[in-house]
Amino acid sequence: MTILLDVITTAAILFVVAAGLLAIFGVLKIINFAHGAWLTVGGYCAVATTGMGLNPWLALPVAFAVGSALGGITEVLVVRPLYRRPLDAILATWGLGIVVGQLITLWFGRDVQFTPNLLSGTINVFGLDYSFYRLFMVLAALVVGLGFAVLLEGTRLGLSARAVIMNETLARALGIDTAKVRLTTFMIGTGLTALAGVLLTPLTSVDPDMGLAWLIGAFMLVMVAGSSFGALAVACLVFGGAQTLVSTFVSPVLGGITVAVLCALVLRISPKGFARA
């Protein structure tokens, strides 16, 4: 029973962390290696918000706003010239991540920062005391996932985005302002990532490198998921589950590299990952 909860909550956390990366990769076909830096930015938004004595929950909208604003600047200055050079885009965003990390360090210092917990304590589920916050993350993942489903299926932007995913040239020919779709998608992606950064603060320490630890896992999951949020959810459940099981029954050390190694193997066998499923 604990295992089941562990698997579901681990998958939920992975989903929340990877969603922003997927939004960008799905539409723009660009891998945003500054993803870790945006998570960190989110974490520090929580530090700044609570530092000003505001309600910690307020950090969520603040982080989304800050993340998307910075994302907008990034898209225009860094990513836009590189759409035709996707490998270079990986490098440029990685470099950007270094810059953001150092700026945070110069501003806030290198220290580990602390934020009040959003929700603390445990809750009784089926006779088990389980971390309340981890269960809350499942809700957060559902909100993010459903939010995207609504955004993609129910709005004009979503329609345009889907058109760009399927056939960008055609989309442009149909009069869709693809540049705007890209900018908006990128901003939503980075905003969401910063938001995920806030959601991580009760689980991890906040320091200038906090995002880096999540980058590779999120990257691998997105590679497997392609451009579909459904596939990402499946990937998070499968690989997050594998990570939990390996950690529990074999060794947490192996568990730490489970996601990366399994994703790499899956991609070798089926280069499109779960995208077709």
Binding site: I31, P86, L87, I216, M220, V261, A264, R268, P271
Partner: peptide
């Protein structure tokens, strides 16, 4: 894909 080699080189 060319990206896959990069993925492996990360892992």
């Amino acid at each position: 894909t060319p990206l896959y080699a990069t993925v492996i080189s990360l892992v």
